[in-house]
Design a binder for these strands. Structure first.
Lengths: 150, 150
DNA sequence: GAAGATTGATTCGTCAATCTTT
DNA sequence: AAAGATTGACGAATCAATCTTC
């Protein structure tokens, strides 16, 4: 009879599948987006998060929180996107430590184009998933993304 | 009446949640693993994949496929782990282009320790999830990780 | 010539330290 | 002193080119 260790725990496999699913999809969808819309997936995330936010603007730290990067990482990411003229830095009038990031005109256009491309890809990815399955997955992931390790 | 664009597509949100859930959990669990077991999550993945494989060995390319990295990325990853004496490169007798990676004695020990730590963390993460929910999530992720974009 | 693996150049994000504003 | 943001030094993965073996 084989010894049972932590290595056999099913939770390990479930989490491994999350990592693998993310890795594979991110790679494939990222390539497709880059090829068809000309921007990396990270940029798309930034454009989308800003586009969906209250007042269409996000502070650097709010953006970092949403895209799950460090503040230093976001500073550099936004630098590159400003270089590409897709976003702008706008000073916050009430707190001079804060910078807002907003979309430029070409930024909005890029968001719209990239979203169209990405949605088509996602339809393919989820082709074989039923509506109830999709809703279940969405709900489970929504709960999962809120989890904090104490 | 607001205009409906691709930006409003629910699939976009579902995939965004996958990315966010992965990002958050990976960051937290990675820190915990590094702090308590002394190895990065990527190393744990490598150890686990090898430990679970037929004959407890994997070729470089099989490893790359499983951990979703490029072959160049895996070469460097394995280099670091050899440096730390957790794995070994073993030549394939029947095909001299191929190198197998196997666990060393300390590698097996590290796998076992890290798995224990990681499983405890995962129990916390999934604390609020019922057994049926866990099974559903596992099944959905398993299907998702197989998807290939045509 | 194709497959497996490695290497050089580059890119992107992290960490820790720093600067400014509150 | 704490919070928001940026910077220098560094680590880890990618891509494209290369080498070896099939």
């Amino acid at each position: 009879m084989a010894q049972v260790t932590a290595v056999d725990e099913p939770l390990l496999t479930t989490f491994g599948r999350l990592v693998e699913a993310h890795g594979r999809l991110n790679k494939q969808l990222g390539r497709s987006l880059e090829a068809q819309a000309g921007i990396p997936y990270t940029w798309f995330e930034v454009l989308l998060r800003i586009g969906r936010s209250e007042g269409s603007r996000l502070s650097m730290s709010a953006l970092a929180e949403q895209v799950v990067l460090t503040s230093g990482g976001v500073t550099r990411l936004v630098d590159r996107m400003i270089e590409a003229e897709l976003v702008q830095r706008v000073p916050c009038p009430s707190d001079r430590r804060v910078w807002f990031v907003t979309l430029t005109e070409p930024g909005e256009a890029a968001l719209s184009r990239a979203a169209t491309v990405h949605v088509e890809d996602l339809k393919q990815v989820f082709r074989a998933f039923s509506e109830p399955d999709l809703r279940r997955l969405d709900t489970l992931l929504d709960r999962l993304r809120e989890v904090r390790l104490t």
